[in-house]
Design a protein around this nucleic acid. Structure first.
Lengths: 213, 213
DNA sequence: GTCTATATAGCGATAGAC
DNA sequence: GTCTATCGCTATATAGAC
């Protein structure tokens, strides 16, 4: 299969992904997108029907493969008996943090966009949660296997804190780099991943209250 | 001093704060705000000159007292020699998390609004950072006193992760409650605070690499 | 200080020619 | 599938009466 110039539909998705990430969904007009994609204003409605449907498809084409990768990595953790906490956390965190160095999958643009959905007030947050529910189910079980004596509620709280740290890296990592004058740089993806896995694992292990749910 | 009906200017600030938090800054029009405040559309421009200046003042009237409270609590930690890690973390986290039960200071509306600024793409993020730079300076020093053998870069990374978890609580705490069918409820402010302090403290202590910066 | 009315611009969406 | 032209609406901001 030879590579040709992407069709209008794909150029629209790429431009929308980048502009939504850089400026926000509401702040990005269809005119910005079609100008950037060198397409006609009417092409968005022809290909997607509405701005909302365009956004849904920007999101949908990336999130599936990311969550499949999460489950694949989790399967690897569980292949040899009880999974280690670090392995489970890495399986959860790596597929999104590694987006930063994977332009083929939307790179930092999609990463930033996804991170911001957690704090959006609108219906977009619901979209994210629908895609996440199976993931939470599976990782909740895996965490319980890795830390069998911890209370389920503790695991939920700690996973929530971990997701917060992950989302902050996804949306505000550039701020950390600027603020520390490059001494802390999230562009070192594997180093950042290990730091977050180690921090969270210590938090999970050290902060449990051991109470029943 | 007796309490009277708030003046238009204050009603505008209150309505803007709530609507900005609930629906986002860009998505909230001056018409929404003036309708909610039972004021005239032109009153925003009379009192503030522009929507941007209105937002700046919504933010400015709350952030000062919050950061003063942070420094006051930090002074208490440091009053008797080397501060404990937990005390420093609580001094940083408590003033924002406690907003949830303090309607006098904007309550969950302002809390949610502030949390979202971390992931906003625009100039608003810069505003937040300007207010934060003294805070980071002071808490960075305090953390180094609490954990003298830890590398400064480690402390920076770990504070960044902690801020991410805090921001996630501020913006998506309702999601945790819904998703767990009320088993985890951020409305229990002091319980939530202790959980986050314990989790972060364990992360700080357990995840340090002990390298030089 | 508060009102009505409006200026000016940008928005999403669509009709209809090609 | 892609284009031009435009509809109908909403936005921020302002002018000027009261």
């Amino acid at each position: 299969m030879t590579t040709t110039t992407p069709h209008t539909r794909d150029r629209l998705l790429d431009s929308a992904e980048r502009l939504f990430a850089e400026n926000g969904v509401n702040a990005t007009s269809l005119r910005h997108i079609t100008n950037d994609a060198e397409a006609n204003l009417a092409s968005v409605n022809y290909h997607f029907g509405s701005k909302e449907e365009l956004f849904r498809q920007v999101f949908a084409r990336r999130i599936g493969p990311i969550n499949e990768e999460r489950l694949r990595l989790l399967d690897t953790c569980e292949a040899q008996g009880r999974p280690s906490l670090e392995c489970v956390l890495e399986a959860f965190l790596a597929p999104t943090l590694r987006l930063r160095s994977d332009p083929e999958q939307g790179g930092e643009y999609f990463m930033c966009l996804m991170g911001r959905l957690f704090s959006e007030p609108t219906e977009w947050k619901t979209m994210l949660m629908e895609e996440f529910s199976e993931i939470f189910q599976r990782f909740g079980t895996a965490l319980q296997m890795a830390l069998p004596e911890h209370a389920p509620a503790d695991l939920t709280w700690h996973l929530f804190f971990t997701i917060g740290a992950m989302a902050h890296l996804m949306t505000a990592g550039d701020l950390l780099k600027t603020f520390t004058q490059d001494r802390c740089d999230p562009a070192d993806v594997e180093g950042t991943l290990r730091r977050l896995v180690d921090f969270s694992a210590a938090g999970f292990r050290g902060a449990s209250r051991g109470e029943s749910p």
